[in-house]
C-alpha cells in the first residue's frame, strides 16, 4: 500500500513548483504582474480598449519604465454627441484598431507590448490637466521609456500625439490609428477587420430570401386598399418637396449644424449670406412655403366646400391673410439674408 504516497509525490512536487513559480512571478517581477493585469483587463473589455480610471492610471502608467506601450484616447461623455467632434465614430474606430491588435497580438510573443486605453474627462479631470489636454480629439502614445510621475505635468512629446497634419482625414480611420501605433511601437497589424454583413457567406442567400419575402409582401400590399390611399403619397410628396426646398441636402452634404450658439448665450438660427445656411432656418423656410401653399389650396378646394356663405367669406379672407403674411415673411427673410432688393426698371 506504499504505492499511494509514491504516486502522490509527483503531483505534490508539481504543485510545489507551480506555487513557487507563481510566487516568483508575483514577488520577483512586478512588470510581469502588471502585464498580466493589463492582459486580463484587455480580455475583459468588449473591444480591447481598457477603460482607465485614475487608480488604474496610477497603477499601470505612472513609473519611470514599463515593459509595454500605452495608447490613450481621451474622451468626454458630455461631448460625445457633438456633431463636429465626431467622437463616437472616432471611439468606434479606436476600438476597431484595438481589437485588431488584440486579435493578432493578444497571445504569443508580442502579447502585452501594446495596450489601448481610454480616459474620460469628468472621471480623470486631474490627469487631463496634467496632460494639458484642452481640446479633443486627443490620441497619444506613452512609450515604455517615457517617465510619468505621480504628479506634475505630463509633457507628451509632439510626435507621440496623433495630429490632423499627419492624418488629415477625420475621424481618423482605424487604419490610420494602427499606422500611428505601428510607427511608434514597431508592432503593426495586417488588416483591420470591419464586420460587415456583405462579407458573410450567407449574404447571397439572405439577400435572395429578403428579395423574395419583400416581393411577397409587396404583392400582398398591392392588393390592399389602404395602400392606394392618395393621402400617403401626397404626404410623401410634400415631405420630399419640403426637404429639398429647405436645403436639406445642403445640410447633409456640408454637415452644417442645426443652429449656432453665440458667445452671449443666445442661439443663432439664421445665418447671413446667400450661399450659406444653418439647418434650422432652411426648415423654417420650407415650412413657410408649405404654409403658403396650404393657404392657396384652402382657397381653391377648401372654401367652396363650406355650406354657409359668411363662413366661406371668413375662411377665404383668413386664408388670404395667412398667404399674404407668409409671403411677406419669406420675402423679408430672403432680403435680409441675401441683401438683394429688386430694382424696378419700369416704375
Amino acid at each position: 500500500m506504499a504505492s499511494a504516497p509514491v504516486r502522490r509525490l509527483p503531483a505534490a512536487l508539481a504543485l510545489l513548483l507551480v506555487a513557487a513559480l507563481a510566487c516568483a512571478s508575483g514577488d520577483g517581477d512586478p512588470d510581469a504582474e502588471e502585464v498580466a493585469g493589463l492582459l486580463r483587463l484587455q480580455r475583459s473589455s468588449s473591444d480591447g480598449v481598457i477603460h482607465f480610471s485614475p487608480t488604474l492610471f496610477a497603477k499601470y502608467a505612472t513609473s519611470a519604465r514599463r515593459p509595454y506601450s500605452l495608447v490613450f484616447m481621451l474622451t468626454a461623455r458630455h461631448l460625445m454627441d457633438k456633431p463636429s467632434l465626431k467622437l463616437k465614430q472616432l471611439r468606434a474606430e479606436f476600438g476597431l484598431a484595438a481589437s485588431a491588435y488584440r486579435g493578432q497580438h493578444g497571445a504569443g510573443d508580442a502579447a502585452g507590448r501594446v495596450f489601448f486605453a481610454e480616459m474620460e474627462f469628468r472621471e480623470s479631470k486631474e490627469i487631463f490637466e496634467r496632460l494639458g489636454a484642452d481640446s479633443l480629439p486627443f490620441i497619444f502614445h506613452v512609450a515604455p521609456g517615457f517617465a510619468v510621475g505621480r504628479s506634475g505635468p505630463i509633457g507628451v512629446p509632439e510626435g507621440d500625439r496623433m495630429s490632423m497634419k499627419d492624418h488629415p482625414k477625420y475621424p481618423w480611420p482605424a487604419e490610420a490609428i494602427a499606422e500611428f501605433v505601428a510607427a511608434k511601437t514597431g508592432l503593426g497589424v495586417d488588416e483591420i477587420e470591419r464586420r460587415s454583413i456583405l462579407q458573410s457567406p450567407f449574404f447571397g442567400i439572405l439577400a435572395l430570401v429578403t428579395l423574395f419575402a419583400g416581393a411577397g409582401v409587396a404583392y400582398r400590399l398591392y392588393y390592399m386598399s389602404w395602400v392606394r390611399h392618395p393621402l400617403i403619397y401626397l404626404s410623401g410628396t410634400l415631405a420630399v418637396c419640403w426637404f429639398a426646398t429647405s436645403g436639406g441636402m445642403f445640410n447633409i452634404i456640408r454637415n452644417v449644424p442645426f443652429a449656432l450658439p453665440k458667445p452671449d448665450g443666445k442661439v443663432e438660427y439664421f445665418y447671413p449670406g446667400h450661399s450659406q445656411q444653418l439647418g434650422a432656418e432652411g426648415f423654417v423656410m420650407g415650412t413657410l412655403y408649405l404654409l403658403f401653399a396650404g393657404a392657396t389650396v384652402a382657397m381653391t378646394y377648401g372654401v367652396p366646400m363650406l355650406e354657409s356663405k359668411n363662413g366661406r367669406r371668413a375662411a377665404f379672407y383668413t386664408a388670404v391673410m395667412v398667404a399674404f403674411l407668409t409671403l411677406r415673411q419669406v420675402v423679408q427673410n430672403y432680403q435680409w439674408k441675401t441683401g438683394y432688393h429688386i430694382r424696378q426698371y419700369v416704375f
Binding site: P230, Y233, L234, T237, L238, C241, W242, T245, S246, G247, M249, F250, I253, R254, H274, S275, Q276, Q277, E281, G282, M285, G286, Y289, L290, F292, A293, G294, T296, V297, T300, Y301, T326, L327, V330, Y334, K337, T338, Y340
Partner: peptide, 28 residues
C-alpha cells in the same frame, strides 16, 4: 454644389411657394 434655400427663391421665386399646391392639385 448643393443649393442653400435662397437659391430656390432667387431662381424660381414664387414657384417654390406654389410647388406644394401644384403637387396637391395633381392629386385632384
Amino acid at each position: 454644389q448643393p443649393p442653400a434655400w435662397p437659391s430656390y427663391f432667387t431662381d424660381i421665386h414664387i414657384l417654390v411657394l406654389l410647388l406644394p399646391a401644384g403637387f396637391i392639385a395633381c392629386f385632384r
